[in-house]
Computed example of a mutant assay.
Amino acid sequence: MPTSSQEGEILAIKQVADFLQVTERTIYRLAAAKKIPAFKVGGTWRFRRIDIDGWIAAQSGTMEGQAG
Rank of each mutant, 00 (worst) to 15 (best):
T23F: 02
E7G: 00
D53R: 12
W45D: 04
G65E: 14
S4H: 14
S60W: 09
G42P: 06
W45C: 01
D18V: 04
M1E: 12
F47K: 00
I52N: 06
L11N: 03
T3E: 14
E24N: 07
E24I: 00
P37W: 05
P2C: 02
T26K: 10
G68T: 15
E64H: 05
A33E: 15
V16M: 07
V22W: 05
R25L: 11
M63Q: 14
G65A: 15
Q15G: 03
Q21I: 07
K34P: 00
P2G: 03
K14L: 07
I27L: 04
G68F: 15
F39N: 02
W55M: 03
I56T: 08
Q21D: 12
Q6Y: 11
P37N: 08
D53Q: 13
Q15A: 12
T3V: 13
D51C: 08
G42E: 13
V41P: 01
G65W: 10
I50D: 12
I52S: 07
E9K: 14
E9R: 13
W45G: 01
A67T: 13
G8V: 04
A32Q: 15
T3D: 13
G68L: 15
E24H: 03
A31R: 06
S60M: 11
A33W: 06
D51I: 06
E7F: 09
E7S: 07
G8W: 08
P37C: 08
Q6N: 10
R48M: 11
R46L: 00
Q6K: 10
T23H: 08
Q59H: 07
K35T: 03
A58S: 15
K34C: 01
V22C: 14
Y28N: 04
A57Y: 06
F47W: 11
Q6H: 08
R29H: 13
T26P: 00
T3I: 15
L11I: 04
F47V: 04
L20E: 06
I52P: 01
W45T: 03
E7R: 09
S5R: 11
P2K: 07
Q66G: 00
Q21M: 11
F39V: 03
I13D: 05
G43K: 02
A31M: 13
E9V: 01
G65S: 13
D51Y: 08
G68Q: 15
F47G: 02
R48S: 04
P37S: 05
I10S: 00
L11Q: 05
S4A: 10
A57V: 06
I52C: 07
Q15Y: 03
R29S: 12
D53W: 08
A32Y: 13
V22A: 11
T26F: 01
I13P: 02
P2I: 10
I56H: 07
T62F: 09
I10D: 00
A32G: 05
G43P: 05
D53T: 11
G43D: 06
M1G: 14
A58I: 09
W45P: 01
G8R: 12
A32P: 00
Q15T: 03
F39A: 06
Q21S: 10
E64Q: 10
P37V: 05
Y28F: 14
V41S: 07
G61N: 14
T23V: 03
A38F: 02
T62L: 14
L30Y: 13
Q66Y: 08
A17H: 12
E9H: 08
P2A: 07
I52A: 08
A57K: 12
